[in-house]
């Protein structure tokens, strides 16, 4: 492996830090999530490093627990979307025929409706819990993963080594997991980073609109919503979670960019 470029290193560091905070939230947060430990919208102090929120809870603690909620939901949704999207995409590419047609047109149908509107409709109809959020986000995102993995796999299935495996009499699972997957991994890994960030933005959007994570639990989007009224009075509390969302997005993107440029350099493209 070539040396990791400085931008990717920063990205890895930022992303790693966020995940570390999310995993250790219970131990590092100075206060609990619900406890009102000060006045409304107190400024930054030694007791409250980021001040307090709209009902006097410690903002730093809310942020730390919010990271846990945001990252957990986004990660779970991304894993779900990749597990279903890539397997179905590879299946469609290798099987071809009517299976490919049915799956691809179904995906077209879902993608024809804007994701946000579709998920708002679903979430108003069902009970909003973390599980339903993950399922809705995961399956909607899976359509995009399906598109990508099918496109990548279609390129690979016409390779002579896949034909050689078919002539040998290999079953479909060998062809998907041993011949195609290892060669499709790089673009998929790069896409994984981007889809994760879209999931973070998506859950934040939903929470901001009030259909995401339900109080008293809150993710970053929820924190922005709770504190957005303060901006009118010059209270910067809403900016901290917004900043966290932006920072995580940039960090993951830097890593994804690096993975992507490594992929293209394999094909003799940029990054040589």
């Amino acid at each position: 492996m070539r040396r990791i470029p400085i931008s990717a290193l920063i990205g890895l560091l930022v992303t790693g830090a966020f995940f570390a905070v999310a995993l250790t939230a219970q131990w590092i947060a100075p206060y609990s999530m619900e406890e009102a430990s000060g006045g409304v919208w107190e400024p930054i102090s030694a007791a409250h490093w980021l001040g307090t929120d709209n009902i006097g809870r410690d903002l730093l603690s809310r942020m730390i627990f919010g990271a846990q909620v945001t990252i957990f939901i986004a990660t779970a949704a991304t894993i779900l979307s990749f597990a279903t999207g890539s397997v179905l995409g590879f299946l469609a590419a290798t099987a071809g025929g009517w299976l490919d047609q049915v799956l691809s047109r179904l995906v077209d149908l879902i993608m024809a409706v804007p994701t946000l509107i579709l998920s708002l409709v679903i979430l108003t109809a069902v009970d909003v819990t973390n599980l339903t959020l993950i399922l809705v986000m995961g399956f909607l995102d899976a359509t995009r993963v399906f598109r990508l993995s099918r496109a990548v796999a279609v390129d690979i299935t016409v390779m002579d080594y896949v034909e050689a495996a078919r002539l040998r009499g290999e079953g479909r699972s060998w062809i998907i997991f041993r011949e195609i997957l290892p060669n499709a991994l790089s673009p998929l890994v790069a896409e994984l980073g981007l889809r994760f960030i879209f999931a973070v933005l998506f859950i934040s959007t939903l929470s901001f609109l009030g259909l995401g994570v339900q109080p008293p639990l809150a993710d970053w989007g929820g924190l922005v919503k709770e504190n957005s009224a303060g901006l009118v009075y010059g209270v910067p509390a809403a900016l901290a979670p917004a900043f966290a969302i932006a920072l995580l997005a940039i960090g993951v993107n830097l890593v994804a960019d690096w993975v992507l440029s490594r992929t293209t350099s394999l094909k003799g493209g940029r990054g040589g």
Binding site: M159, D160, Y161, A164, L167, R178, E179, P182, N183
Partner: peptide, 14 residues
Amino acid sequence: MIYQMADVAMNPRQ
């Protein structure tokens, strides 16, 4: 069967 382009007849990850 043996192919013309040995390059693409072998899985590059094996």
